[in-house]
Amino acid sequence: MSASNIKKTPLYDLHMELGAKMVEFAGWSMPINYPMGIMGEHHHCRNKAALFDVSHMAQVIVRGENRAKAFEALVPSNIDGLPVGKARYTFFTNDEGGIMDDLIVSNAGDYLFVVVNAAMRDQDIPHMKNNLTGCEVIEITDHALLAIQGPAAESVVAKHAPAAADLKFMETMEVDFLGTTCRISRLGYTGEDGYEISIPQGEATRIAKILLEDENLAPVGLGARDSLRLEAGLCLYGNDIDATTSPVEAQLNWAMQKRRREEGGFPGADRILKELAEGPTRKLVGIQPLGRAPARQGVEVVSMDGTSIGQVTSGGFGPTFEGPVALGYVASEFAAPDTDVQLSVRGKLLPAKIVKTPFVQQNYKR
């Protein structure tokens, strides 16, 4: 991608002012880290609060009288029964039962508010437009999206919008935020308490600067966002889930409510319901390398008798965990916690074990 084609978020100039190191990500110029560095930013989020620019994500409004029921034809989650002001994690599935993308759907009352991954917007938005019969699908291109994550997130945000303190995990509302109407949702991608705030793009820099006046809040880039989500055991689309992996293999059964499991009626239901009943042949698991060397994506997982049983999909150093952490798929008979395995790293077999996730306790406000 040429430099002239790379898109910039409304906060690009602020990132430069704050000394960010910028990289191309999903066609956008995004901060990978600031002068504090990835390790410092990671700890700041875990201990205080972090400000992430996630404006590259696609924000979409779906209108129409039967919008929730129509949406259920594309996902295996309960959208028709989602109360007003609630958000739900779900995923588009394909006819083979694979995951096309994961997303957040919120019931905003008169419409559904949908946030999909930046790299998948050119697939997801046409997918919705072509399949949500009787619905209007509108991408919101004039709003930024900021995430404030960490134990101090509530104090940082509620100072300017007191009602935000009353939101629980996966709840959403529109409020007056520093003089402009914003949608605040209590959710995130770090395992910590926090919010995502959809802000008119012309107000985004002003609001971000005011928020950053709080000594508990620091700007944090994509580098720490990845180490935070990995410690929290959260899937990254394109690594841990993709169009070939099923929700059951990815151990996302919790995102498919009982009614949908019983009724089906979504793409790939035959495979998914069969795997729910009989179990999948492989599962996504936490993997802890027992040395200091991290296991990166693509590393082969090997049984103790030397048989190839799977592959690492995400891996790196966990700053809070204080050691290497990884996610990967292994044959189901090896997926139990405390199973000893080996990792084939640069021709050497290194010891590891299967562990429960998350690696670091999640701190959502239930």
Rank of each mutant, 00 (worst) to 15 (best):
L11N: 02
A20V: 06
A20S: 06
W28Q: 07
W28Y: 12
S29W: 10
S29N: 08
S29Q: 06
P31S: 02
I32S: 09
I38M: 03
E41N: 07
H42L: 00
A73V: 10
S77Y: 00
K86H: 13
A87T: 12
R88S: 09
T90Y: 10
F91V: 04
T93H: 03
T93Y: 03
M100N: 11
L103P: 04
N107L: 05
M128T: 10
T133W: 02
G134P: 03
T141N: 06
A144E: 06
L145I: 15
L146D: 00
P151Q: 14
P151D: 15
A153V: 04
H160F: 14
L167Q: 09
K168T: 15
M173K: 11
L178K: 00
T181F: 11
T181G: 10
G191N: 07
G194P: 13
E196T: 10
Q201M: 15
Q201G: 11
R206K: 15
K209D: 08
D214R: 10
E215A: 14
P219V: 09
L228K: 07
E231Q: 13
C235W: 13
G238K: 14
F266R: 07
P267R: 09
A269Y: 13
I272W: 01
L273W: 08
L273F: 05
A277H: 11
E278I: 00
G286T: 06
Q288V: 15
A295I: 00
V299W: 00
V299P: 00
V302A: 03
V302G: 03
T313R: 04
T320L: 13
G328D: 02
F334G: 04
A335D: 09
L343E: 01
R346T: 02
P351H: 09
Q361P: 05
N363E: 15
